[in-house]
């Protein structure tokens, strides 16, 4: 009768919890919103990934879904919403317009939202098939588990005064 126990790191446990409770803020602007609706719908059912419930306040969300074209006029709004989301937060760029501007390369469109805010996962497609979005969600969950999300890495860089384990990198 030996004593059975397992060891693990707290960070892994926390990240595991995070990846299955993504609360998304849908920043829906354009055509991709139609596929985004389909994603919620019965056929594709994003609820299976724990990411079904939209929070329409950025303060309650941790996943920002940028769905559709972002124009220069819209960009300050996007940036503001991103800044309102609490850390750690993740950004998924849904569709080519959000990722690179897509085939709108003109005076009014932002050539990819990563010119405005950091992005964790890009989904190609105009609009992407819901399967691609589910794939991206799995990819994001893996990143969250590994602590590779943009804001997770930023947190590692900034020392927390209460936490002696996070120190700034030694030169």
């Amino acid at each position: 009768m030996g004593l059975e126990f397992t060891t693990g790191r707290l960070a892994d446990a926390i990240n595991w919890a995070r990846k299955y409770s993504l609360f998304q803020y849908p920043f829906v602007t354009a055509c991709c919103g139609m596929e985004f609706m389909a994603l919620w719908g019965p056929r594709f059912d994003v609820a299976r990934f724990g990411a079904e419930f939209p929070r329409f306040s950025p303060r309650q969300a941790d996943l920002l879904m940028v769905v559709g074209t972002v124009t220069e006029r819209q960009a300050p709004v996007l940036k503001r919403i991103y800044e309102q989301i609490c850390e750690p937060k993740w950004v998924v760029s849904f569709g080519v317009c959000a990722s690179s501007g897509g085939f709108y390369q003109n005076y009014s469109t932002v050539p990819g939202i990563d010119h405005v805010i950091p992005v964790d996962v890009y989904i190609p497609g105009c609009p992407p098939q819901p399967e691609q979005v589910l794939d991206a969600l799995i990819m994001l969950q893996q990143r969250i588990q590994d602590g590779r999300g943009w804001s997770q890495r930023q947190q590692q860089l900034e020392p927390s005064p209460r936490d002696p384990h996070t120190r700034p990198p030694q030169p």
Binding site: T29, A30, T71, R73, Q74, Y104, N106, S108
Partner: peptide, 11 residues
């Protein structure tokens, strides 16, 4: 309105 002006005519 105009937050989704994508330059349809220019394109």
């Amino acid at each position: 309105v105009g937050y989704l002006h994508r330059g349809f005519e220019k394109e």
